[in-house]
Structure formats: structure tokens, C-alpha cells
């Protein structure tokens, strides 16, 4: 049995995540805000996680970094992109999975896997944060709703039409919907539908294959999940490690090194 101790560190635009594993067993995981420097966030989330489980850093044999800040983690043995890591993480949770939808802070990506878990094709949002966690955050703020309640409220509404694909313009659209007396629930449902449309267009471009798994912090949002299931016309599994899936994949790849 593989007892190699490995870690994965995923530095995203909003949060930093770390996972430590012994072979196939997850020993610990941690999420914190990335803050100003990716480098410091990487060190802190790694040390914090090891502190929680009382493991000295020198026991970790191999570290893989991923995410936007992957190249700033100088104590990692290798940097791997979040595409490969999310594929590996989802595959670990359920090897039946052929398609991964990851919605993170400032990007959303879709990844198609083959029978052996290898990435066949992928797409990411380009130069625009519509259809990402940040888009939902901006909208929640405009509507003065706590982000944690945002998804739940969306399930109670009939989607109002949000036509702009730009986050900034969509915010003004939301403000005018409020002025017109549209209910908060309907507006929120519309926002989720708009974000889901962007992601499903990417998924169809790459070629949707079932089963689908959703990863990333936004997978916790039930409204987003429902909107995506509707747009993709397919059930979506949510990994219990959704938010740390990239770091999990990185730790798995570290075990293979």
C-alpha cells in the first residue's frame, strides 16, 4: 500500500486551499483567503493545515502547487495547472466521472476526461468574469444578500431576464430590475441562469459527456447547481471535496511523482 505523504496547494484568486494525503487517505484540508500575496498564502495555508493535524512539515515527501499562484510557491516540487489537477481530483472522488465543471473565483472551466481519467479537452472563460464566483459575489452585494443565502433564494424564484454578459453591465441591469419592482428571488434566479448559460455554452463547445461532476467553491451554491443542471439537461454530482478539489488533485499528482 502507498503510504507516501504528499500535499497539494491550490492558490486561487480568492481563496488558498491545501490538502495533505497519505496514499489514498486524506489526512487534512484547509481553506483560507488568498489575500495580497500568493506566496504568503501558500505558506500559511500549508503550515496551518499541518498545524491542525499536528504533522511536522518535513514529513511531507512531495508537494504540487496549482492555481493562479502556482508559480509563486517556491517550496513546491512541481507546479501543475488547475485543469490537470481538477481532472485528477474529480477522478479520485469518482472514477466514473467523464466531465468536470469547475467554477472558481475568477474563472470557470470545463474538462472532458477519458476512461483513464486523462484530460482530453478543456475550455476556460476568457478575459471576462461572467459565469464565475466573482460574478455571483458582485450580484449578491448589489442585492444586499449574504452569499451563503444566495443560492437558496434563487430556488424560490422564476428567473428574470439578465441579458448582459458583462458583470459590470449586468449589475446595472439588476439595479434597474430592482427599480421596476422585480422580486429579489426572481432577480437572483435570473443571475444564476445567466451564469449557468455561460458555463453550459463552454461545456457544449468541449462536448458534454456524462456523468458530470461540479467542483470549486461555487458548487456549494444550490441555486447555481440547479440552474446548471437545467441548462445542461443532466444531473450533476457534487464532490464532497468540491472547494479543495484542485488541491486534492495536486496531492494525488504528487503521489504519482
Amino acid at each position: 500500500m502507498n503510504t507516501k505523504i504528499t500535499a497539494g496547494i491550490d492558490i486561487g484568486s480568492i481563496t488558498a486551499k491545501a490538502v495533505v494525503m497519505e496514499g489514498d487517505k486524506i489526512l487534512g484540508a484547509r481553506v483560507q483567503f488568498t489575500g495580497y500575496t500568493a506566496k504568503k498564502a501558500g505558506r500559511d495555508v500549508f503550515d496551518g493545515m499541518l498545524g491542525e493535524i499536528g504533522m511536522p512539515p518535513d514529513r511531507v515527501e512531495c508537494i504540487v502547487s496549482t492555481g493562479y499562484g502556482r508559480n509563486s510557491i517556491d517550496f513546491a516540487d512541481k507546479a501543475v495547472t488547475e485543469i490537470t489537477c481538477h481532472g485528477a481530483g474529480a477522478w479520485f472522488v469518482n472514477p466514473e466521472v467523464r466531465f468536470v465543471v469547475d467554477v472558481g473565483g475568477q474563472d470557470s472551466k470545463v474538462i472532458r476526461l477519458d476512461d483513464s481519467g486523462k484530460v482530453v479537452d478543456f475550455a476556460m472563460n476568457d478575459k471576462c468574469a461572467a459565469g464565475t464566483g466573482r460574478f455571483l459575489e458582485v450580484m449578491a452585494r448589489a442585492l444586499e444578500v449574504d452569499l451563503d443565502d444566495f443560492g437558496e433564494l434563487s430556488l424560490a424564484g422564476i428567473p428574470a431576464k439578465i441579458s448582459s454578459i458583462c458583470t459590470v453591465f449586468a449589475e446595472s441591469e439588476v439595479i434597474s430590475l430592482i427599480a421596476r419592482g422585480e422580486t429579489r428571488e426572481n432577480i437572483i434566479a435570473g443571475i444564476h441562469e445567466s451564469a449557468a448559460s455561460r458555463i453550459s455554452a463552454m461545456a457544449r463547445r468541449v462536448g458534454l459527456v456524462l456523468p458530470v461532476m461540479m467542483t470549486g467553491g461555487v458548487a456549494k451554491n444550490k441555486g447555481m447547481l440547479a440552474a446548471l443542471e437545467k441548462k445542461l439537461d443532466a444531473p450533476i454530482q457534487v464532490s464532497e471535496y468540491a472547494q479543495v478539489n484542485g488541491a486534492l488533485g495536486a496531492a494525488i499528482l504528487a503521489a504519482r511523482m
Binding site: Y68, T81, E82, I83, T84, D107, D121, F122, M124, D126
Partner: peptide
């Protein structure tokens, strides 16, 4: 950075 990620991921595949 977006383009870098795409190229790195493409090369990984």
C-alpha cells in the same frame, strides 16, 4: 496569466 495556464494545461495533456 490566463494564456499561460491554457498553454501549460495543453502541454500537460
Amino acid at each position: 496569466s490566463q494564456i499561460e495556464t491554457r498553454i501549460d494545461a495543453f502541454m500537460e495533456t
